[in-house]
Amino acid sequence: MTPDEVILLSHGAGGKLTARLIDSVFLPRYGNEILRRLGDGAVLPPLAGDPVLTTDAYVVSPRFFPGGDIGSLAVHGTVNDLLMCGAEPRWLSLAFVLEEGFPCEELARICDSIGRAAAGAGVLVVTGDTKVVERGRGDGIYIAAAGVGERVRGLELDPRRARPGDAILLSGPVGQHGVAVLGARRGLAFTTPVISDSRALLREARALFAFGGALRTMHDPTRGGLATCLNEIARAAGARIAIDEDAVPRDPPVEQACELLGMDPLYMANEGKLVAVAAPEAAPAMCAALRAAGAAEAACIGAVVEGSPLVAAASPAGGERILDVLTGDPLPRIC
């Protein structure tokens, strides 16, 4: 594959060029003995626990951003979704939709990062597909990912189990992915040192799995950020959630960027954080377990309380505000 080669329509036709793409780009970077069989699907070994399936589409723009790219994001995001379901991630499938003219060198870099991320998360990419759309009909590359995991015994993760008195734990500072991608889009006109927090939450999730039933539910606050995630939990639990904004771990450059853009870090996307609802008696130990697992700034940020499903936040000024459900992508504003 020469450096200046680009994706042609025929790369998606299933013929010789598709095979060359698989042999020269995909297999060397994340091949394994199941994927190498190149069947129409992957025959998987039996699981002791219940199987869990998740699926996600990745269209992030720009494709490369500080702290990651669309490839590592696809692996981490899918792995994290499985972890949030209380499952040990096992296998992934990745389907690419490539645009005619997409540089093969970029595809190779993305597949390198897929390989590293999959190895890091201890998962195998076992099946996949590649389609090519005409130039102008796509945005370079989209990735549709699916993941299968094995449910950990003794866990019953369901936001409906959250009840008044339960503690809300957050594994680290919010808004890093959202600001990193926004900064990458703006180029020199607006630069931040913020890098995406995109990573697999294996250690954090496993640290909490050990608490069994005391762990009510777990979620990764991706699109819509922490506030949207908390609203989903409140609605499912039919209860109010009260948090203290001062207790939410902060990353100063994220806050500074959000101030300048008139945006709120609590609504900015995260790709490497988790929110856990914990039984009150287990919360301190869970928070300590998160920290021991490497989430150095993990904190209890609030609790589920009696009341109608809303999320209330005590503001740093000492007042209180409602964290409403997001009505659309956060937009930078001047007034």
């Binding site: 020199l188 006109a189 630069t191 931040t192 450059p253 806050e255 500074q256 101030e259 300048l260």
Partner: peptide, 8 residues
């Protein structure tokens, strides 16, 4: 700059 965020 506002803290570590810079702008033209």
């Amino acid at each position: 700059a506002l803290g570590d965020v810079e702008q033209e």
